[in-house]
Design a protein around this nucleic acid. Sequence first.
DNA 1: GTCTATAGATGGATAGAC
DNA 2: GTCTATCCATCTATAGAC
Lengths: 203, 203
Amino acid sequence: MAGTKEILKRVSIDLFYKKGYFATSISDIARAAGIQKSSIYYHYATKEDILLDILRSTLADLIVTIERVLETTAGSENRMRQAILAHTLFHLDRQKEVIISDSELRGLRAENYKDIIKMRDEYEHRFQALIKDGMSDHIFQNGDFKIISYAVITMCTAPCWWYRPHGRLDKQAIAGIYTDFIMAGLTGNQRSTGAKSTRKGRR
Amino acid sequence: MAGTKEILKRVSIDLFYKKGYFATSISDIARAAGIQKSSIYYHYATKEDILLDILRSTLADLIVTIERVLETTAGSENRMRQAILAHTLFHLDRQKEVIISDSELRGLRAENYKDIIKMRDEYEHRFQALIKDGMSDHIFQNGDFKIISYAVITMCTAPCWWYRPHGRLDKQAIAGIYTDFIMAGLTGNQRSTGAKSTRKGRR
DNA sequence: GTCTATAGATGGATAGAC
DNA sequence: GTCTATCCATCTATAGAC
């Protein structure tokens, strides 16, 4: 446990988050991990491979998280609500990694880029299906479900850019506010004034 | 007109947008502008200065745009609607520059960074005031106006990340969908099903 | 599996001629 | 205001000893 490869991944997440992928050098990573830079190449073939490892595992975890929520929740409105909550909370829990996922895709060469985009599209399709379901059940207002899905996802990804662990609002409160706002936009109904949002089970 | 400095700025916007600030070298810029890299230093002292020039002018234009809208529009609901429309359209019109503004702030050293953040905060305060106004006029649902302002701004900034000039929807249509969605979220009222949003005057 | 040493390319920036 | 030439730091990655 805590093998060198895991340490390298962890310090890379920190550095890519703080300085950005391009501004982070192999030397920076080696220094942070307490080894020589040449030793990194025993674990990762290139710097890009470190980035790829971070992006893949983050996206995979995100997809698993949403899958679990959808497996245990019924009703198009409730499914959407729980999915948004889960998405927002994941982005607050895994702040550094999702920010890297959002901003460092340019560090990938074409083949790896395509791979990651495919995973991301797979995830987004789940939200598009949820919105479509809500519309055909006449619970959500009709509209361009693809555009709306982008809007919803972007919006609920955003708090990870400004959230600070000891700030005025905790993760649950932020996720609640966002979910209420989105659900109001989707249904066209009054928002519940308090953001206490009954969540089920997980976490 | 079309002086070298303007050309340098224009090709830098293209390159920073396409490859990112760090991945773009002074040589890249020189090649794109058709001059030698040393000639760049007659116009800009450092690479960072090019970035700063782009960020400053983009933010300044954005602030002027929103000011003009607010000067000529009355009523808290209508002011908010027009502000959102203007914000969204600006982000679609100036796609490359706003994407740079959103993603390349890490290229700035502390003093320049503070400068730009101050301008950005100034802009965001206008939206916070609009939301506060709408809440005290009981036209918008009560809520955390600061959080809501972040949500609104992020959401209406997002289309610039996926908009393509000859895509399925034109700028006006996209801006309409987003504005309707946001206004529904703010007021808690039914959205107008069509997104034809009566806009006034400008552009 | 980690080290020392270094290759080889490229980065931003400067000097000085024209 | 643009050029050629070059400095020097830093970058990713490799070679080979232990």
